[in-house]
Simulated scan of single mutants.
Amino acid sequence: MDTTKAWESYRTELKPALDSKVSELKLLGYKKVTEDQLWTYLLSKRWKKLGGEARLHQLVNDILSVKPQEFMSFQTVEAFKSPNLFAKIDEDELKELLAFKPGN
């Protein structure tokens, strides 16, 4: 079985724990945290070496024991990995952007 499919089957069972952790993070001031972000963190960091095989109670414990600092550090690193929005654009693109008039 593909490991992605294996993890997705766990996700439905783990939804209450995921929702609980997202709510906790929001109460702590991290208002924009989503379940998808938390899930990505867990797959990339906590469960990377499990290979899709784990006991449900261990996964719930992993979710509920996520520390806000670890999660936000991961989010910061992921943000730096994303494409650079301020990368150089070519001259034609720049002219097109500057020539844009709303309503056209």
Rank of each mutant, 00 (worst) to 15 (best):
S20M: 04
L28R: 14
E24G: 01
A54Q: 08
T40V: 09
K21T: 09
G51A: 05
S65E: 06
E24W: 12
T34H: 05
G29K: 05
G52T: 06
R11W: 04
Y30H: 12
T34Y: 09
L18Q: 07
K49H: 13
I63T: 02
T40M: 13
L18N: 08
L38N: 09
L27I: 05
K31R: 13
L56C: 03
E8Q: 11
L18W: 12
I63D: 00
L64E: 10
N61I: 05
E24K: 11
E13F: 12
R46D: 00
K32D: 14
V22A: 07
G52V: 05
Q37D: 12
Y10P: 01
L18I: 15
R11Y: 01
K21L: 13
V60H: 02
M72C: 12
L18C: 03
K45M: 11
S44H: 09
L64I: 01
F71M: 02
L64N: 08
L42N: 02
Y41A: 05
A54D: 00
L18R: 10
G29M: 09
G29T: 03
M72A: 00
V60N: 02
W39E: 08
R55M: 07
G29I: 08
K67A: 12
L38Q: 10
L50M: 01
D62I: 00
S44P: 01
V60S: 01
T12R: 15
R46G: 04
E35C: 12
V60K: 13
S20I: 01
H57G: 05
T12M: 08
G51M: 07
Q69C: 06
A17V: 10
L59V: 08
L59P: 07
K26V: 14
K15F: 13
F71T: 02
P16V: 02
I63L: 05
T40W: 12
P16W: 06
G52Q: 04
Q69G: 08
K26T: 13
K48I: 02
R46M: 04
H57N: 10
E53L: 05
K32V: 08
L25G: 03
D36W: 10
L25M: 13
M72Y: 14
L18Y: 11
R46H: 09
Q37I: 06
A54H: 01
L18E: 10
S20H: 03
I63Y: 06
R11T: 07
L59D: 06
